[in-house]
């Protein structure tokens, strides 16, 4: 079961990227394409076969995993910047791309890389799962690695959540509100993903579903908001719904 989840996530992200390609070529919000592209790259690195091949090319000591985590940082950062701008949340925007936000990004990135460097090199294993077995030091450090990896995502998600929930209640096109609701679900799942790192072992079985769910929710939320614009544009007047009625 948990083997198929990353594939589903990859298909969702790759389809979104592919569908967004024409708009990117026309120069319409290329960031959105970049977001889907980065999510696709992260999806690829989450699948065992691809991971082993790519990490092998990078030396076979799980550098690909650090790369994956940094790609995920970049993806959520870009999503958050777009969402806070689009949904008009200047406070949340500052918390993400203002001085405090960038400081958080720097701290978590530095922590992630430092913890990784402190660990003894371990042979390639997807999701970094065998790194703890190498030595006692690695086993002790691994929770810190994951805390850094998921901590930034949770921070950004928490900053986004109020703006997303507010947008769900506002008088916006239904598809936009549904999209905001899906992204809010993604934010909740992301925070839950961090909590699960510290949860008792029995709960760990749901972790893959929660973490993949977060990606799928965020991605499909973005796609829905985009669809809302396509729908509005089809009704005439480039996304400007008529004020006459």
């Amino acid at each position: 079961m948990s083997e198929i989840l990353p594939w589903i996530t990859l298909v969702v992200c790759a389809s979104a990227a592919l569908a967004r390609l024409p708009s990117a070529v026309r120069g319409v919000n290329p960031t959105l394409f970049l977001i889907f592209l980065l999510a696709t790259a992260a999806g690829i690195l989450s699948i065992e076969q691809f991971y082993m091949a790519i990490d092998g090319a990078l030396g076979g000591i799980n550098i690909a995993h650090v790369l994956l985590r940094l790609i995920v940082f970049a993806t959520i950062y870009l999503i958050a910047v777009r969402v806070t701008k689009g949904f008009g949340a200047p406070d949340a925007h500052r918390m993400i791309s203002g001085r405090p936000g960038l400081a958080m990004l720097a701290i978590f990135t530095a922590a992630l890389v430092t913890v990784f460097l402190l660990m003894e090199p371990a042979a390639s294993s997807v999701r970094f799962r065998e790194a703890g077995a190498v030595s006692a030091r690695n086993e002790a450090l691994l929770p810190y690695y994951w805390a850094a990896a998921r901590g930034y995502l949770a921070y950004v998600s928490l900053a986004l959540l109020p703006a997303l929930l507010r947008s769900v209640r506002e008088s916006l096109p239904p598809l936009v509100r549904t999209g905001a609701a899906l992204m809010a679900a993604g934010a909740v799942a992301t925070v839950a993903g961090l909590c699960l790192e510290f949860a008792p072992l029995q709960l760990l079985v749901v972790a893959p579903a929660v973490n993949n769910g977060a990606v799928v929710f965020y991605t499909s939320g973005l796609v829905l908001v985009w669809m809302a614009r396509v729908k509005a544009a089809n009704r005439g007047g480039h996304g400007t719904s008529s004020t006459g009625r």
């Binding site: 319409v28 969402v83 008009g88 916006l172 096109p173 936009v176 809302a228 509005a232």
Partner: peptide, 11 residues
């Protein structure tokens, strides 16, 4: 205006 901003950034 709000909708326009959304389109500009996420559409």
């Amino acid at each position: 205006r709000q909708t326009e901003t959304i389109w500009e950034n996420l559409g």
